[in-house]
């Protein structure tokens, strides 16, 4: 119990430390540059305290419950797959690691759905678009992108292929999609790449990458462990743009068939 309380204190302190520079900047600009008081200062103050407390509680809970399990799981799964592969005269066969790809996709999806900063952006997008952007749909589309990205990133670590190849191809896909999408979704889709990798996703995904790189023969955790975060930042852009292009196409097709039915 004492340990737990000490944890709570530590996490609150470190959250406070992260937030202090932001608060200082905001207050300086509000007071010195704008020379005005914030409207509804009490509401904003209670809200900010709730954000702080909430984030600290959230992090403590993750440390207690999720991260230890997630990390041991990542390690055990990669070891298990690695043991099966090692029996085959040391040759790495990427197929032996299918459980890892499955786990990577599942955990990438699940952690992204719970990512607080993605929730924030989805709420804002729904509000700004007057409900045209469905907050839940956006989050699912982003989570699917992260799932594919992390899974492919694990495949890359197992096969040891160079990271830039994948990233360059992904960029080319994004560029092509940009020219096919409607203008309104593009800024939001670009943003969704950056918001996915934060509090929940990064620690679990990093543990997965390190565990995998340490257990696959011939890979070094230091050199091959990198890159999963980069994958998890690019693929959501592709999935959100892809979702928007498909939704647009369906809508246009439905309208055209409606018109054709109406004609005769």
């Amino acid at each position: 119990m004492l340990d737990f309380l000490a944890d709570v204190g530590d996490t609150l302190l470190s959250t406070l430390r992260d937030v202090t520079p932001i608060v200082v900047i905001l207050v300086v600009f509000q007071v010195v540059v704008l020379r005005s008081r914030l409207p509804n200062i009490r509401g904003i103050a209670t809200g900010s305290v709730m954000v702080l407390l909430g984030l600290a509680l959230f992090l403590i809970g993750l440390e207690q419950a999720l991260f230890p399990i997630g990390e041991t799981m990542a390690q055990q799964l990669t070891e298990k797959a690695g043991a099966g592969a090692g029996a085959l005269a040391g040759a790495v066969r990427w197929q032996d690691y299918w459980v890892v790809y499955l786990f990577a996709a599942a955990i990438g999806f699940a952690t992204t759905v719970a990512e607080p900063s993605l929730i924030a952006v989805a709420l804002k997008a729904k509000e700004v678009s007057g409900g045209a952007v469905n907050a839940w749909g956006l989050r699912i589309a982003v989570a699917v992108g992260v799932a594919i990205g992390v899974s492919l990133g694990c495949f890359r670590i197992v096969t040891g292929t160079p990271l830039p190849w994948y990233i360059v191809v992904a960029y080319v896909v994004v560029i092509i999609q940009t020219f096919l999408s409607s203008r309104t979704i593009i800024p939001l889709a670009y943003d969704s790449g950056g918001v996915t990798t934060s509090t929940v996703t990064v620690p679990v995904v990093a543990a997965l990458g390190l565990g995998l790189a340490a257990n696959v023969p011939g890979r070094s955790p230091l050199i091959d462990g990198f890159g999963l975060i980069a994958f998890a930042s690019v693929f959501p852009i592709i999935s959100v743009l892809g979702y928007a292009i498909v939704a647009d196409g369906l809508e246009r097709w439905r309208r055209r068939s409606d018109r054709q039915e109406a004609k005769p």
Binding site: T46, V49, M50, V51, G54, L55, P116
Partner: peptide
Amino acid sequence: GLALFVQGLESG
């Protein structure tokens, strides 16, 4: 924690 955070987002 997540519930508090989201509530605080909207009001703070």
